[in-house]
């Protein structure tokens, strides 16, 4: 299964220029939208499910457009900035997120036949643990969950998350390790297929 990998960042070095131009030529903001819609949409739908996501995705870009003159390139890349806005908006939909997680936990395994036997076996076990994992994520406090999912789903680095959520750099690491500890505990901390290394700085 492909991770939600980073898209768009390296080649789009001129995001800042585009935002600058969009101050005077609002149509230019469409370029930002085109570059980041897919991944922001993926992130929000993952967390809230497709129905609630629609408004949140729209509002993320509309808010970014309205705030484009306030965008500070020295602080954050455009991508980080958008994840920050989206994450804030998701925060208003806590119950929806918990409901979405419950649904995820119930989803029946989609087994893939291709690939190595070991991998298939690992997936089978992982699928079996879905409800526990989903419940554990649902139980995390909001701040911890935001950090966890910005790492796992968005692939943001600690520095980017600090800027996106407007929290100190060190807080990102402590929230992440707290979240991961809880997940492991929920999954039965000794499960051999889990990577137990406390390597949060990845």
């Amino acid at each position: 299964m492909t991770a939600l990998s980073r898209v768009g960042d390296p080649a789009r070095t001129d995001d800042f220029t585009v935002i600058q131009l969009s101050r005077d030529e609002p149509e230019r903001f469409g370029e930002i939208f085109d570059a980041y819609f897919a991944e922001i949409h993926r992130y929000v739908v993952s967390r809230l499910g497709p129905d609630a996501a629609e408004d949140v995705v729209a509002e993320t870009f509309l808010a970014a457009f309205r705030k484009r003159t306030l965008y500070d390139a020295d602080r954050a890349g455009v991508r980080t900035w958008l994840y920050g806005i989206a994450t804030n908006l998701i925060g208003n939909h806590r119950r929806t997120e918990v409901r979405a997680l419950r649904a995820l936990g119930r989803r029946s395994p989609e087994l893939r036949v291709e690939g190595h036997d070991d991998r298939v076996a690992a997936q089978v076990s992982a699928q079996g643990l879905r409800p526990e994992l989903a419940a554990a994520i649902a139980k995390l406090n909001k701040g911890d969950r935001d950090v966890l999912l910005l790492v796992a789903l968005a692939g943001l680095g600690h520095d980017e998350i600090a800027v996106a959520l407007e929290i100190p750099y060190g807080t990102v690491g402590s929230r992440l390790s707290r979240a991961r500890k809880k997940l492991r505990a929920a999954l039965g901390g000794t499960n051999p297929m889990l990577d137990l290394e406390e390597n949060d700085r990845g």
Binding site: M1, T2, A3, L4, F37, A38, H41, R42, V45, S46, R47, P50, E54, V57, A58, L104, G105, R107, E110, A122, Q123, A126, L129, R130, L133, A134, I137, L148, L149, V151, A152, L153, R180, L183, R184, L187, M193, L194, D195
Partner: peptide, 22 residues
């Protein structure tokens, strides 16, 4: 497979939404 990977797998893939995009 690590726990972050499991989280990603739990969320799975999201189909594109061209209509919403438009």
């Amino acid at each position: 497979m690590d726990d972050l990977r499991m989280v990603r797998d739990l969320y799975g893939e999201v189909p594109p939404a061209p209509q919403l995009e438009d």
